[in-house]
Computed example of a mutant assay.
Amino acid sequence: MKRVILIFCLSYMPMAQAGSPLIVIYDSGNTSPIAPYLPKRSGPQPKPPKPSSANKAFQLPIETPSMSPGFVKVTAKPLKYLQQPLFLVGTDTRSRAWLEAKHSQLVKLNAVGLLIQADTLKDIQAMQALATGLRLIPASAESFAKPLALKHYPVLISKDGWEQ
Rank of each mutant, 00 (worst) to 15 (best):
D92A: 10
Y26A: 14
M127R: 02
M15L: 15
L99Y: 01
V24H: 09
P154C: 05
I5Q: 12
A101V: 05
L99W: 04
T91I: 01
Y37H: 13
P48E: 09
H103S: 10
M15I: 13
S143T: 15
Q117W: 07
S143A: 13
D27R: 15
S140K: 09
L88D: 06
A101P: 00
L114T: 10
K47Q: 02
M13G: 08
C9E: 06
S140A: 01
K73S: 10
N30Y: 14
S28D: 12
K77L: 14
F144H: 07
G29Y: 06
P85Y: 03
V72M: 00
K40F: 12
L150V: 04
P21C: 09
P14H: 04
Q83M: 10
K73D: 05
S95V: 09
S143W: 12
L86V: 10
G29R: 03
Y37G: 13
L136T: 02
A35S: 13
K2A: 15
K108F: 04
Y12T: 14
K159A: 14
S143G: 10
Q17Y: 15
L106E: 01
K108H: 11
M67K: 02
P49A: 11
G70I: 08
L86H: 00
A111Y: 03
E142K: 03
I124S: 03
K151N: 12
P14E: 03
F58T: 05
G43C: 09
V74Q: 00
D160P: 04
L109M: 13
P39V: 00
L88T: 06
V24Y: 09
F8K: 11
Q117H: 11
F144V: 00
A57H: 05
L121F: 07
P138N: 04
K50H: 12
A18N: 02
I157P: 08
A18I: 09
S42V: 12
S95H: 01
I116H: 11
D92Y: 03
I5E: 13
E163C: 01
L79E: 03
A101M: 00
S143V: 13
H103N: 02
T120Q: 06
R94A: 13
A16P: 07
P36S: 04
Q84W: 07
V24I: 14
I5D: 10
Y37S: 13
Y153A: 00
S53E: 14
W98K: 09
P85A: 04
L109W: 11
S95T: 05
K122V: 04
L106R: 08
T120F: 05
T91M: 01
Q84T: 14
D27L: 11
P21N: 05
R96P: 06
P48T: 05
P44W: 08
A16G: 13
S53R: 15
M67N: 06
V4H: 08
K56A: 14
K40N: 12
I25G: 10
V89G: 02
S20H: 04
S68C: 09
L82K: 00
G90W: 00
Y81E: 15
T93S: 14
S68M: 06
P138W: 07
I137P: 00
R96C: 11
V89S: 02
R41F: 14
K56T: 12
F144I: 06
M15G: 11
T132Y: 09
A97H: 10
P48I: 06
E63A: 11
M13D: 08
L148Y: 00
P46Q: 02
D119N: 15
M127Y: 04
P138Y: 06
A54G: 05
W162E: 01
T75M: 11
T132L: 04
F144N: 10
P33H: 12
S158L: 09
N110F: 04
L82E: 07
